[in-house]
Design a protein around this nucleic acid. Structure first.
Length: 867
DNA sequence: TTTAGGGATAGTA
DNA sequence: TACTATCCCTAAA
């Protein structure tokens, strides 16, 4: 922190390195294996509530007992004096938000991890090491968030929100070797043999998935059934959702302690690390709001189904000295045979009022002087842990859910040591269902379940490539008359897409068409956003996050009128300027929704028309009650001169071994990914990149060539210079160059451009006539293609494209007859890549490489086109 | 596991 | 609206 403060003007590289310095200084005494095996946490992409500064949290809360401020509390409250509150009420103290939490104060949202995974400036993790002797060490990785959003159940029930949220992983080591790992989930959790868990990027560090809003920690991503605290519903009704969102490395901004269980004392590893706060016995958030509180909503007035619940207690209450296996197993076994079941009153009440709620599935037991609720039917925790893999049969080799690597193939052979006795936010809830193996005291841990949707559809080899425009597809004339529209200069935008299959022949009156068959470009008319479209956009952003424009655009739930992803972004920027700007602000800053109510005051004043901005009230009317969250995209970081220099040096040293460049410590590029480095090299040093035999990035949509000197003269000189430079440095290599380029595994074949004096399809036309838009093909075209083989062209064998049946003039091609359905190459592609399922897109005709002597009316083979 | 190819989005003019 | 830089996804080696 000290160094960061002094050198704040330094670059990201330095800051990043500083983060490592901090870590090293603070953890010198921490057992190395505690660091080496520390979890990496995938936050949920859509989660608005990120890890938060433990210290900062205190600045925005005040201690209350029974909804009344504690008069004798120290001021200010700090991590160094927090435990003094134990004198004022102990467990009854609630650190209560000073401001209305529904005004979305900044601190509630925590801090987005930076590129290094660090919550910059926010210590949001406490690592607590309990050395139990005889080589047995439990390491707790406590994660702190300032707010827990309980989620919406049954589509209408928002319950379980609370200020403050502590979750954790615990790893049990034997002689420095990790044996088991525990993931805390609500009032319970799961344990796995350490070896079977997913690891981070080639390291030994296990991955933990933090659920959206609740921050429950899971071993795999995807959906996870769980229970509303104190209420059990059928499996699947209530779910946590986790995904591979931003990576958080909790160790980069953490406090480190050892814990002596016999004396119940904490000792900091770092000299300046505050310790006192760990002894605080109270709650880290507000006490459950009373029914009379405007913020509180209890479903059917049932106390167990309230929107806001108590804030949690802290690390000291997480049972830091967990029991040995035998004790726990015996205790649970005993629990299964004791007493009649007791259904909590609020569940009975709910059931009485809602008859179709499933019958009671809980039983309460006293175990180790604690009340536990046993879930009779729903498999959770122990049941889950101790059965063989519940998802995949044992005989089926396990595959990695994402890349097929058999990381989880190891059979579950580890015995369960039963450190499950703790790790709860309150009472312990366990299932009596369990399967013992061996002597009944040792229980097998399962393999991790494989994500249900892990299978990835593949494109059949013969059609592979159809999902991407063939590099030379531009040689073929457009086959869609509806696309024969001279586009704007760079008409590659998605709003050029027709809404239906594009192979349909236009029925437009011929008189409206110029003689060359091309429609004149329509003057772009302003396409105003309708209220319906705007509502769709806002709902889409609430659902997919700021930045997932394409996902919103493609979602069939939302209707847009010829919009592009860019349009969506621009519109959102107009409707909610401050929230959009939040994406551009430094990590960790949040614009509270209270400042987004449409009023234009102070710094929030926006240029956008007030009528276009959407107030909180309007959002509420759309059912949007939560702040918009970010997409999982990393924040952009401009490359510094130092980085560029280092990349160039690295490239000279390692060539295109980007991973080696990244890993070279002397280059200080570890904060960029290897692909980032490739991208930057490709962008910044196209010449060097190309000279090394690497294919420059092809134009996504080839621009029309400069046809003659006149055109060039009209071009602004600066632009021309730029083009000249880029042509020299980044121009696609010629075929010869391609063939001579060494060590190139993939080559880019660029569409050849017509020399200046060539004739274009026999008809003169100006720039406006040139079609640079994508052709959008209906998937039926493939069937058509299959039917259109003749002696000259086999489209599927050449470009896998239908060839035009005529090239005379530019009238509608004779391809309108095929309307049958092709099952699904498009679907396969779309399903695989998340694209629309009804179209395939190809670049359209730009400048055909036609010889002036080509004969109108003749079908040319692809080879002829190339020749 | 790494790189290549190229699409998507952010940011700016 | 246009354009580039950066980030991202995925096929292929």
């Amino acid at each position: 922190m000290f160094y960061c403060g002094l050198l704040s003007f330094f670059t990201i590289i330095v800051l990043s390195d500083c983060a490592r310095c901090e870590k090293r200084q603070d953890v010198e005494s921490v057992p190395s294996y505690v660091m080496d095996y520390a979890p990496m946490v995938h936050l949920h992409t859509a989660d608005a509530y990120r890890p938060a500064s433990i210290e900062e949290h205190l600045k925005h809360t005040q201690p209350e007992v029974n909804y009344t401020s504690v008069s004798e509390s120290p001021s200010p409250l700090t991590l160094g004096n927090l435990s003094s509150l134990n004198e004022s009420g102990g467990e009854d103290v609630y650190l209560t938000s000073i401001k209305n939490v529904e005004d979305d104060p900044d601190w509630l949202f925590g801090v987005e991890p930076n590129n290094s995974g660090k919550t910059e400036g926010a210590f949001s993790c406490a690592v607590i090491v309990n050395d139990k002797g005889s080589g047995l060490v439990d390491a707790f990785y406590m994660y702190f968030y300032s707010f827990n959003f309980g989620g919406v159940y049954l589509d209408f029930l928002n319950v379980g929100n609370h200020v403050g949220d502590w979750e954790h992983n615990m790893i049990r080591f034997q002689d420095g070797v990790p044996q088991y790992i525990w993931y805390s989930q609500h009032s319970n959790g799961e344990a796995f043999a350490f070896d079977v868990t997913e690891k981070y990027n080639g390291t030994e560090r296990p991955i933990a998935y933090s659920a959206n809003g609740t921050h429950a920690v899971y071993a795999i991503d995807g959906d996870h059934a769980h229970a509303i605290p104190n209420l059990n519903l059928d499996n699947g009704i209530v779910e946590d959702h986790s995904d591979k969102g931003p990576l958080w490395d909790p160790t980069l901004a953490a406090y480190y302690y050892s814990y002596n269980a016999s004396s119940e004392t904490f000792t900091a590893y770092g000299n300046d690390t505050p310790v006192d706060w760990l002894y605080f016995k109270g709650h880290w958030g507000d006490e459950q709001y009373k029914d009379s509180n405007d913020l509180q909503e209890c479903f059917l007035d049932i106390d167990g189904l309230c929107k806001y619940t108590n804030g949690p207690t802290g690390p000291i209450d997480k049972q830091l000295d967990r029991e040995e296996a035998k004790t726990v197993i015996e205790a649970i076994a005993a629990s299964a045979n004791s007493g009649p079941p007791t259904v909590p009153a609020h569940i009975l009440e709910l059931r009485r009022r809602i008859p179709d709620i499933p019958p009671s599935k809980t039983r309460e037991r006293q175990v180790d002087h604690k009340l536990i609720i046993v879930e009779v039917y729903r498999p959770t925790s122990l049941d889950f842990i101790n059965r063989p893999n519940p998802v995949e049969p044992q005989s089926v080799p396990q595959k990695h859910p994402l890349n097929g690597t058999p990381q989880f193939a190891k059979p579950p052979s580890h015995s369960f040591d039963g450190f499950l006795s703790g790790g709860t936010d309150g009472e312990i809830r366990r299932s009596p269902k369990r399967r013992k193996s061996g002597d009944g005291k040792s229980l097998d841990l399962p393999k991790l379940p494989v994500r249900q949707n892990a299978k990835r559809l593949r494109i059949p080899p013969t059609l592979s490539g159809l999902h991407q425009p063939p590099p030379d597809a531009g040689l073929l004339p457009s086959i869609s008359t509806e696309q024969l529209v001279a586009p704007p200069k760079h008409g590659n935008s998605l709003d050029d897409r027709p809404q239906g299959p594009a192979t349909h022949v236009s029925h437009e009156a011929p008189s409206k068409r110029p003689a060359n068959g091309l429609k004149k470009a329509r003057k772009s008319k302003r396409n105003r956003w309708s209220d319906e479209e705007t509502a769709c956009l806002l709902k889409g952003v609430a659902r997919f996050g700021i930045g997932n424009w394409t996902a919103i655009l493609k979602c069939p739930d939302y209707q847009f009128d010829r919009r592009t992803a860019l349009d969506l972004k621009d519109r959102f920027r107009v409707c909610r300027p401050e929230e959009y700007l939040r994406t551009k602000q430094p990590t960790g800053t949040n614009v509270p929704r209270s400042n987004l109510d449409g009023s234009e005051t102070g710094e929030n004043k926006s240029k956008s028309r007030k009528t276009d901005r959407k107030s909180n009230g309007e959002l509420h009317e759309l059912g949007i009650t939560q702040p918009f969250h970010q997409s999982g995209r990393r924040k952009r970081h401009k490359y510094t001169a130092e980085e560029d220099e280092a990349i160039l040096r690295g490239f000279e040293k390692f060539g295109n071994s980007w991973a080696a460049i990244q890993a070279d410590e002397s280059l200080q590029l570890g904060h960029r990914t290897s692909t980032d480095l490739r991208d930057r090299m490709r962008t910044k040093y196209p010449k060097e990149y190309a000279e090394a035999g690497l294919a420059p990035r092809p134009e996504v949509f080839p621009k029309p060539p400069q046809r003659n000197a006149e055109d060039r003269q009209e071009e602004p000189s600066a632009q021309r210079e730029e083009n000249d430079e880029s042509q020299q440095s980044a121009q696609a290599p010629t075929r010869e160059e391609n063939e001579s380029a060494p060590n190139r595994s993939r080559k880019t074949v660029s569409a050849p451009f017509l020399p200046d004096d060539n004739v274009f399809f026999g008809a003169p036309f100006d720039n406006d006539d040139m079609d640079t838009t994508r052709i959008t093909l209906d998937r039926d075209i493939l069937q058509w293609a299959g039917q259109t083989k003749n002696g000259t062209i086999d489209p599927l064998n050449s470009l896998k494209l239908p060839a035009p049946t005529t090239i005379s003039g530019f009238g509608p091609p004779h391809n309108s007859g095929a309307t049958g359905s092709l099952p699904s190459v498009a679907d396969i592609t779309a399903a695989d890549r998340g694209y629309r399922t009804d179209h395939l897109e190809l670049p359209s005709l730009i400048m055909g490489h036609f010889d002036a002597e080509s004969r109108p009316g003749q079908v040319l083979g692809f080879d002829e086109l190339l020749s």
